[in-house]
Structure formats: C-alpha cells, structure tokens
C-alpha cells in the first residue's frame, strides 16, 4: 500500500513537471519577454546588493572592497549608541507618522470628491491641474516656500495686516513639521488620486442603479458601494506605504533644514548623505541604510499579515 502511494506520488510529480514544462513551452514568448525586465532587476537591483556587505566592514577606499577588514556589527553598535540615534529616530518617525495620518488619506478623499463631480469636462480639468505639482522639483517647491513664508513674504504680510505678530515659519522648530507635511500634501495628493480614480472607474454601475431603486441616497451609495469597492486598493497602498516609513525624502528635508530647525529636521536620509557622501564614512552610512531597509521589510510583512488576518487579500 505504502509502496503504491509512493509510486503514485512519483508519477504525479513527473506529471506535474511535464505539465510545468508544457506550460512554459506554451507561453515561451511571454517568458522571453520577461527576460529584459528580469535582467534589469538582477543587474541593477540584486548584484549591487552585495554592496551592503561593507556595512559589516571597515571600508577604506585604499584597501578596496575585498581588502577592508571585517568588523562584524561594529558599525551598527556605533550607530545605535551614538548621541544622534535617538533624535534621528524620533524625528524620522514623527514626520512619517504625520505624513501617514494627514498625507495618506488626502488622495483618497480627493479621489472620492472628484468622483462625485458630474460635469465631465470640469472633472477632467481639475484632475489635470492637480497632477501638476507632482512634476515640480523639490528645489522649486522649497524656494517657493521660502519666498512665501519668510518674514517679508506674502503670508507674513497678510498676518501683519490682520494685526497679528509675524510667525517665523522657516526659522522655528515648531512650524517645521506642519510646513513639511503641507508641502508633501500639496505636491503628491493630486498624483496619488490616479490609482483610486482607476479603482473607482472599475465599480459596476449596476450596483448604483440597484441602490437608487432601493432608495439609497448619495451618502448611502458612497458608504455602502463606493468605499467598500476601493477598500482593497486603499489597504494595498497602505501596506506598500509602511515599507517606506523611515524614508522621508532626502531632497525635501535637505532643502528645508537650517540651523534653527535642525533639532527636528535631521532624519536618517539626510544623515546618510552627510555621513556617506560629505564625510566619507561609507560603511557607517551603509549600515544606517541597511537598518532603515530592515525596518521597512519588517513593517511590510507585519502589516501584510495584519491585513490578511483582517480578511483582506494583502499584497503577497
């Protein structure tokens, strides 16, 4: 009996292998089409990954990649015990947290609002207009912010005209975070609506028709049809977003920081740049970068698990 089942198993396995081969043969051209993309990932993403090994070395340009001595976790302990670590960690997380709370729902809300617009030409125009900020570089946005918010800028002139005291937006640690979050929302909200609008366009119109017949008003339609239909998209994007929780966007922070807000503006991204490129501590900054990525992976996995536990499909 046992022998027989074993035999069947082997047979099944062979059958399966044959099936797989046949499948590949059937879609041979599709597999070939995948090759350039695969090569891209191998050459530009996987091979350079060996570079992270220098996080465990004391990399010295003269000794080179292979000659530099191994130091184990020294770079990591140096980083975790450095006086900067606590501050960087708190700053990074705070900005990310605010970005998540205020920045993440913004495109959802905007997409839903756009979806309710009846006049097509009007909707299209608005859609195009809100995409524009995404294509403006951070350098421009930072200088716009400086022009608008400095002590002689339009905003402060307005505040003064209202009879209030000028607010030092750019030179105060208290106003730094709102300014940063505001910039991000202004720049990315419009572009972020694209995916949600696509999801909204995919909702079956019959659902709405049925709901109208059942006497559902617009809010009920929104609550019972629209929102559940894009829930999956929202959750997928949220999970992906979690992976970037320690990325604050180097350009923005680098451009907006100055001596008076450095207590809140120094984050991992800027730190990696200063240590790695400006100071030449390659191993150290690689270790910091690796730490960031590890946190990202852990967060993606755990939020994916959570999503699955809550009955959603997750991303993998």
């Amino acid at each position: 009996m046992a022998e027989m089942s074993a035999g069947i198993k082997i047979k099944n396995k062979r059958k399966k292998q044959g099936y797989k081969l046949r499948q590949i043969k059937k879609d041979l051209w599709l597999y070939i089409l995948v090759i350039p993309g695969l090569l891209h990932f191998i050459v530009f993403k996987y091979l350079p990954m060996w570079g992270i090994l220098i996080a465990f070395k004391d990399y010295n340009a003269y000794l080179g990649f292979f000659g530099s001595p191994w130091v184990g976790f020294k770079q990591f302990t140096d980083f975790f015990t450095s006086p900067e670590f606590g501050r960087l960690f708190v700053n990074t997380l705070t900005i990310s947290f605010y970005n998540l709370i205020f920045g993440f729902p913004a495109p959802v809300i905007m997409a839903l609002m756009l979806n309710e617009i009846r006049k097509q030409w009007y909707k299209r125009t608005i859609q195009t207009l809100v995409y524009i900020p995404h294509f403006i570089s951070w350098v421009i946005i930072a200088s716009l912010t400086y022009t608008l918010f400095n002590s002689q800028g339009v905003i402060n002139k307005y505040i003064a005209a209202m009879g209030n005291e000028a607010v030092p937006f750019l030179t105060s640690a208290d106003t730094f975070r709102p300014l940063i979050i505001g910039q991000t929302i202004w720049k990315e909200t419009g572009f972020g609506t694209i995916i949600y609008l696509a999801a909204l366009a995919g909702i079956d119109v019959q659902l709405y028709e049925a709901a109208v017949i059942d006497g559902a008003n617009r809010f009920k339609q929104f609550w019972h049809i629209t929102l559940p239909s894009i829930k999956g998209t929202i959750i997928t994007l949220l999970i992906l977003r979690m992976g970037h929780i320690l990325d604050n966007g180097f350009d923005q922070l680098f451009l907006m920081s100055n001596s008076l807000n450095r207590s809140v503006s120094e984050v991992f991204d800027v730190y990696v740049y200063t240590m790695g490129i400006t100071r030449g501590a390659f191993s150290f900054s690689t270790a910091v970068g690796l730490f960031k990525s590890l946190i990202g992976i852990v967060l993606i996995y755990s939020s994916n698990r959570l999503a699955k536990a809550a009955g959603e499909s997750g991303i993998f």
Binding site: N60, A61, I277, T278, G280, A281
Partner: peptide
Amino acid sequence: NVLMASNEHPDVILVPDVKNAVFVDGIIA
C-alpha cells in the same frame, strides 16, 4: 569623496581641505 572611493585615481588629486576626513583616512591607509 567619490573619487577617493573609486579605483581610478588621477595622478594628482586636489584635496579641498587638509582636514577632510576621507583624506585623513586615506593617509592612515
């Protein structure tokens, strides 16, 4: 800094600042 980390060195390197950490590391090595 990038030049120092690369394998292709020119014959003469302009050091922007004697106290540059990468330069000092290079001397030690």
